[in-house]
Nucleic acid binder design. Structure first.
Length: 562
RNA sequence: GGGCCUAUGGUGUAACGGAUAGCACAACCGGCUUCGGACCGGUUAAUGGGGGUUCGAAUCCUCCUAGGCCCA
């Protein structure tokens, strides 16, 4: 948004470094105040003059030296406010968007670099509930964001097939059960095992065989595990979430054991009184977070614990690329820190981690974490089905031609992505299935409206004027606001990529859609004339790819009709 | 008991330390002889509490309260 022009202007005339100006420049809270503002309060200290005086001096000094990108300048309450040339911005930004189309907004941050993203990684004992789906939906959106930035993401799903849970399932299941049945068996078996010591011993027997890498046992459990994962992935595929590779924990038993030697060399490994290998992680930031910053790596009998295989797995991933990202629930924060410290001890790079907070559910007592066992849970499948049902109702009500699945998907994803990843979501059916206001379907609706205008224009077959940079467009409030929002897409992409935070894109797309609808309501395109009509057509034409690009990052289909 | 995260209208949320705290849902009022009413306009309504830093705090520090997560 001509920030460069503002910086250059100030730099030449005011005598502060470009970096400093860049840091100070901000966008005024109201559009009427201007497009860029330089607050002069910090300068007041250095210059030993009142901010109001500085702002006044700067603005009168620059008033007659404005480049064509800046149309006017004003000093208000210690701020120097810059008004950019909207005609120029509009023509330039529209041209840029239409030139770059699906690439518009991308900074080519990745430049083809391979990046490995691990997300979802559900335990293979039941189908995903909405809480777990947040992991997959955020992960998928990050993958899309990275792809947009020209990284080459490879999506991995880590399967915890070495666990007591798997042993319990192996004891109770044949391997041909549905996920629902499997879950029931798992819950029943867990209860039985709790009460029956003999049964529990059997479970541990299976577990230790798996942990020891016993091929026959693993082969047997593998079938059940694969079957379970297949079921999970199928549900997630309804949301358009895909994986490139599935990695089994059981494949890292050997590599994990071998790591003991590496850790031994660090001098931080010792055997505790029970004969377990323990890694001493004291002396670092964990000191205040844990009473004893120790990481237990093995059992007394020498078999490796989960973390050892996890370490080996993360080292394996590094063979493909040094750029690793992992999406983990908030419950894993401390565990992950311990893992990262351990990796660092043997000079291995830990993945960059994105944590997200749980989806809570309303209960009689208030709200709590979703729990399959207590039955306080919304399954993803159920959520999808309900959303499709609602979408069909809406379509019937409007007698429109919409794709119920895509609309449902949009509603689900948007409801999960719009909230800051660090915040809990309290699941609410009514809100999640609301298709009005700030929602996925609203975004799709905006795309559909924009496309509908272009369809009508196409039928007119008139030659519209080409807009030029020199044209006086006499833009209205809504046109300017939409234009600026189009220009701001780059900022949203930049911030979202830097922070790996899809909610920034979600918030941006909603604002863009809102501004488009405001434009739609006040600025008729078909009935406009001459240059104004041409401009509005171009503006609609430019809005579509930006909406599409942001929706694609969110994993929402920008459908043309609904 | 210790650590991490969170707290904004009735509800859900936004806001690089910057100007009058933005938006949605709900409620109420209004807008189709005009490109799709899953829309648009308007009204009511909010920074958990106490200290501090700063020219300026929802934002930073500190104590307290409440919730989520982890360690014990």
């Amino acid at each position: 948004m001509f920030k460069e022009s503002v910086i250059n202007l100030l730099w030449k005339e005011v005598g502060i470094s470009k970096e400093e100006i860049n840091r100070l420049l901000e966008m005024p809270p109201q559009e009427e105040m201007g497009d860029w503002a330089l607050p002069c309060f910090e300068l007041a200290k250095i210059m030993k003059k009142a901010p109001v005086k500085i702002a006044g001096d700067i603005s009168s000094k620059l008033k007659n030296k404005l480049p064509k990108e800046i149309s006017s300048i004003k000093s208000v309450n210690g701020y120097v406010n810059f008004f950019i040339n909207k005609d120029l911005l509009a023509t330039q930004i529209i041209k840029e968007i239409l030139d770059k189309k699906e690439k518009y907004g991308s900074e080519n941050m990745g430049d083809g670099e391979k990046v490995l993203v691990e997300h979802t990684s559900l335990n293979p004992n039941s189908e995903p509930h909405v809480g777990r789906a947040r992991n997959a939906i955020i992960g998928d959106s990050i993958v899309r964001l990275l792809r947009f930035q020209n990284y080459e993401p490879e999506v991995h799903f880590y399967i915890n097939d070495v666990s007591k849970q798997v042993a319990i399932i192996a004891l109770g299941c044949k391997g041909n059960e549905t996920l629902d049945e499997m879950l029931k068996i798992y819950i029943e078996m867990t209860k039985k095992v709790e009460k029956n010591a003999k049964l529990e011993q059997e479970v541990f027997k299976i577990l230790s065989k798996i942990e020891e890498g016993d091929k026959k046992t693993i082969e047997k459990t593998e079938k059940i595990v694969e079957h379970a994962v297949k079921g999970q992935v199928k549900v997630l595929s309804h949301l358009g979430i895909k994986y490139d590779k599935f990695d089994f924990e059981s494949e890292y038993i050997k590599a994990g054991q071998d790591l003991i030697e590496d850790f031994d060399k660090t001098g931080k490994l010792f055997k505790d009184k029970d004969g377990r290998f323990v890694l001493d992680e004291s002396g670092c930031e964990l000191e205040k977070e844990m009473r004893a910053p120790m990481l237990v790596l093995t059992r007394s009998n020498g078999t490796g614990l989960y973390v050892l295989r996890d370490l080996a797995y993360n080292i394996e991933k590094l063979k493909k690329t040094q750029s690793n990202i992992i999406i983990l629930g908030e419950e894993q924060k401390l565990y992950f820190k311990q893992l990262a410290i351990a990796l660092d001890m043997i000079n291995k790079l830990a993945p960059r981690v994105v944590h997200y907070s749980f989806v809570l559910i309303k209960t009689k007592e208030g709200k709590s974490k979703m729990s399959t066992r207590r039955g306080e849970v919304v399954m993803l499948k159920e959520f999808i089905n309900e959303a499709i049902k609602k979408a069909k109702e809406e379509i019937a009500k409007r007698k429109s031609k919409g794709n119920a699945e895509e609309i449902a998907k949009a509603a689900i994803k948007y409801s999960m992505l719009k909230v800051d990843e660090n915040k809990n979501i309290v699941f609410d059916w009514e809100e999640a299935l609301n298709f009005e206001g700030e929602s996925g379907p609203y975004l799709q609706y905006s795309v559909a409206r924009a496309n509908s205008i272009l369809e009508k224009i196409k039928k007119e077959k008139k030659n519209n004027l080409k807009i030029k940079a020199s044209d006086k467009l006499k833009l209205g409030k809504e046109e300017i606001s939409l234009t600026k929002q189009l220009a701001l897409f780059k900022n949203a992409v930049h911030e979202a990529s830097k922070q790996l935070a899809p909610h920034i894109i979600a918030t941006y797309s909603y604002e863009l859609a809102k501004k488009f609808n405001e434009f739609y309501a006040t600025c008729p395109v078909m009935n406009a004339k001459g240059l104004q009509k041409s401009f509005r057509i171009e503006l609609v034409r430019a809005t579509i790819p930006v909406l599409e690009n942001s929706l694609n990052i969110l994993g929402i289909s920008p459908i043309k009709k609904m």
